[in-house]
Design a protein around this nucleic acid. Structure first.
Length: 416
RNA sequence: GGCCCAUUCGUCUAGUGGCCUAGGACACCGCCCUCUCACGGCGGCGGCACGGGUUCGAAUCCCGUAUGGGCCUCCA
């Protein structure tokens, strides 16, 4: 994986990184991380750290130290000088250019695309070393592939037309090119390259939105790859065991946020309750919500079946932790239900979901109201919303004092 | 403009000449379950870009067209 340190890691690049990682882990090989920083003008200060944090969060661990392309400036310059001596390159206004063949074709067997051929007459004599001495990407990259004994280069399809150039350079120094696999791009719903306007695009944004890393990994793996005709939910371990480059398709994939949300929900619902609570607590802490951890843990079970992203928790269950805005206006007669509920709940013992449910259902039938009708105003009064976790569990967690307080406020001064 | 890559339901995909009356998943619609919202169950809608070949037979092979994308930097 060889990102350039120009900003946050884009989800399309992460998908490519994932394929590299899955392939390496499946084959028992190494997954290497190299920072392509030969363009010093575009380098962004914190990007190198961000890239590593993002990969770690997703669960992509690399082997050995991170390497930096510019660190081998001396070696690449040396090779360039040798190529000039051998007549395979030449100086041009202070820079060094590689002499590309003029006839025939340069070809390779791409693992995802099959045989790809380029007419050599299309190949320009590319700059190897800039006039200021820094190597260019198209020179440094293949050289490092050789020095690091990279066996497989899995990268985006935008590199297809760079490949014949790199192949020629590698052959010129008497080495064998690695195996290449060019994967397609990831697009937004409008068919254009995925960008900000489509939604989250950086790993950080997905993290902050409350996605669960294994779910995101699963989703990304299925963008351009499949195991068979029906398997969709696969743990990281299963993905590693089943992945193969041969099953990567060459056509571009559109990022479907709805499907990601669904898949994330599947993962969250499958988590053991304690694990779910742990993840939720960690998410809220990192999102800056300084809420009582004990209460968050008690609330976890009643939201696990309901939300598909941790990011939905504040809106969905925030009424447990902070004051609520006045809810929608109560319909005619609703105030009576609310104040009756307040009177009943003032006496319930113990103040627990089961007893609360019995009490409120009895109240509904006494008032000759359907549960649906009777509970709506109570829900709005207590949670501030028409949509919430289970009413009885919510009331238990809120506690008697706050529940009565909110019911009184909603019933209005007349009965308060 | 040149070269290269791609093209199966709205989306992700299965499919490698007969198993295809094209399978699965998300989304959408309907019904059931139900304290809201979800979950779950059942059912439905919906596709091989187009045109020529090759073949007894093509989603699958070949050619062309169209559409989309990439590259053509002393960017990566």
């Amino acid at each position: 994986m060889a990102p350039s340190p120009t900003g946050f890691l884009h989800i399309g690049n992460v998908r490519t990184a994932l394929f590299n990682w899955l392939f390496a882990r499946h084959e028992g090989g190494e997954f290497r991380l190299r920072i392509e920083n030969t363009d010093t003008s575009r380098e962004v200060e914190a990007a190198t750290q961000q890239i590593q944090d993002s990969l770690r969060w997703l669960g992509l661990d690399w082997d050995g130290d991170v390497t930096f392309q510019l660190d081998r400036m001396e070696e690449t310059a040396e090779v360039a000088r040798r190529l000039v001596e051998e007549g395979k390159a030449y100086e041009d206004e202070g820079a060094i250019r590689f002499r590309m063949p003029d006839e025939g074709v340069t070809a390779w067997d791409d693992v995802v695309r099959g045989r790809v051929e380029f007419p050599n007459e299309q190949l320009e004599d590319l700059v190897l070393v800039r006039s200021d001495g820094r190597p260019t990407y198209n020179f440094a990259s293949p050289m490092e592939d050789v020095w690091d004994r990279i066996t497989h280069v899995i990268r985006g399809e935008d590199h297809i037309s760079n490949t014949p150039k790199q192949v020629n350079i590698i052959r010129a120094i008497g080495a064998e090119p690695p195996v290449y696999a060019h994967v397609s791009h990831v697009l937004g719903a409008d068919g254009k390259s995925l960008s900000k306007r489509h939604g989250s695009v950086t790993v950080d944004e997905f993290k902050h939105a409350g996605y669960y890393a294994p779910a995101l990994m699963n989703f990304l793996a299925l963008l351009g790859w499949s195991y068979d005709d029906k398997t969709t939910i696969m743990s990281p371990e299963e993905l590693v065991e089943r992945f193969s480059l041969e099953r990567v398709v060459p056509s571009p994939a559109t990022f479907d946020y709805d499907k990601l949300d669904w898949m994330n929900g599947v993962y969250l619902r499958t988590l053991a309750p304690e694990e779910y609570a742990d993840e939720l607590v960690r998410y809220l802490r990192e999102a800056g919500h300084d809420w009582d951890e004990e209460l968050v843990r008690r609330a976890a079970p009643i939201v696990q079946e309901k939300i598909e992203r941790f990011g939905q928790f504040p809106d969905f269950a925030g009424f447990l932790f902070r004051d609520i805005e006045p809810g929608p206006a109560l319909r005619d007669g609703a105030a009576d239900v609310v104040s009756a509920a307040r009177d009943e709940l003032a006496r319930v013992e113990p103040f627990a979901a089961a007893q609360i449910e019995t009490t409120l259902r009895d109240l509904a039938s006494r008032l000759e109201l359907s549960p649906r009708k009777a509970f709506e105003p109570i829900r709005i009064a207590v949670t501030g919303s028409k949509v919430s976790p289970g009413l009885f569990e919510s009331i238990e967690l809120l506690g008697r004092d706050k529940t009565l307080e909110r019911l009184s406020a909603a019933a209005g001064p007349a009965r308060a």
